[in-house]
């Protein structure tokens, strides 16, 4: 594009946005509403993921050691666990440590055992797997090892949790795809309308000898600007909403950790800005082709 054409295209795009103020506002509005919904859903999705990931990473297998096991048997068991490829972390918890932890949790209720020789708790290993979803299979395998009294991993809770998160993720994905497709149609339709309103102008341009790209550029830039504004506004809105939500959650639901604000904004911008501008550009470039055939 020659220099004159470049300035002409930008100037024309800005003038046209201003000239068709109501259509511009409507187009930006459509982009804002759809991207706001999409962004809101992404927020929920991101946080659900974050929560399930953090729950997943806390899933542990506890292997209780037989009281009668010898030192050699205990050492052998430890070596086998450390060498196990599915395990990420192996930690020995002595019966004394287990009792101390229990006291911290339950306080006075374990008062009676204080200093007692009759600690009812066994020695154990706390294990973490590389893949949290593999805990069931790994636990079953470990139960067959010698010197193992019992393996515990909260079977029902863990499996229920994984099934639920998988279902939530699938629904979230389906809804986001549906919303993105709706956004594409809405934006393309709105831009087609702005092009339709200006078909006369396009026809005159063709008659006075404008090339197709000369006509297209201002529309493409216009689409880009509509998409950009349409993405920035919901980002600003979501920033505010998320900040308020974070404050509320940290005050009322302390056990819940949400994705930090900067990370969320980076993640949202990464999708919403290219999506908004891309939709704007594609929408305007393609919806006007019909009017260029003069």
């Amino acid at each position: 594009m020659p220099c004159n054409g470049f300035f002409y295209a930008w100037g024309e795009a800005l003038r046209s946005l201003n000239r068709n103020k109501w259509m511009t506002i409507a187009s930006i509005g459509v982009v804002v509403v759809t991207l706001l919904m999409l962004g809101g859903f992404m927020l929920v999705h991101l946080n659900l993921n974050h929560i399930t990931e953090s729950v997943k990473s806390q899933v542990e297998i506890v292997v209780y050691i037989e009281d009668t096991a010898t030192l050699a048997e205990r050492n052998e068991l430890r070596e086998r666990l450390v060498a196990h490829s599915a395990l990420a972390e192996v930690r020995f918890v002595s019966r004394d440590e287990a009792l101390r932890r229990m006291k911290e949790k339950l306080g006075d209720l374990v008062e009676g055992y204080e200093g007692s020789e009759e600690n009812p708790l066994p020695d154990s290993f706390e294990l973490r797997t590389h893949n949290p979803e593999a805990v069931g299979a790994v636990a079953e395998e470990l139960a067959r090892y010698p010197a193992v009294a019992k393996v515990d991993y909260g079977k029902a809770t863990v499996e229920g949790l994984f099934q639920a998160t998988r279902a939530v993720q699938l629904v979230a994905l389906a809804l986001m795809i549906g919303l993105a497709v709706t956004a594409v149609f809405l934006i393309a339709h709105t831009i087609r309308m702005t092009v339709f309103i200006r078909r006369r102008e396009i026809m005159i341009m063709k008659y006075v000898g404008a090339t197709n790209w000369f006509i297209r550029w201002p529309f493409v830039l216009e689409g880009l600007l509509i998409g950009l504004f349409g993405a920035i506004l919901p980002l600003a809105g979501l920033y505010y909403i998320y900040r308020v939500s974070l404050d509320w959650v940290s005050a009322n639901l302390m056990f819940l950790t949400l994705v930090p604000l900067p990370l969320v904004m980076v993640e949202l911008s990464k999708y919403l800005i290219p999506l908004g501008t891309g939709l704007g550009i594609l929408g305007s470039a393609f919806s006007m082709d019909r009017f260029l055939r003069v």
């Binding site: 004159n4 054409g5 005159i204 341009m205």
Partner: peptide
Amino acid sequence: MVFQDFRLLEDRTAFDNIAFAMQVTGA
């Protein structure tokens, strides 16, 4: 080209309408 229905951009000035045809050529 000259048309019976003029085919001008009515919301713009006379100057803009004429300049339009020159801008197209990269003037």
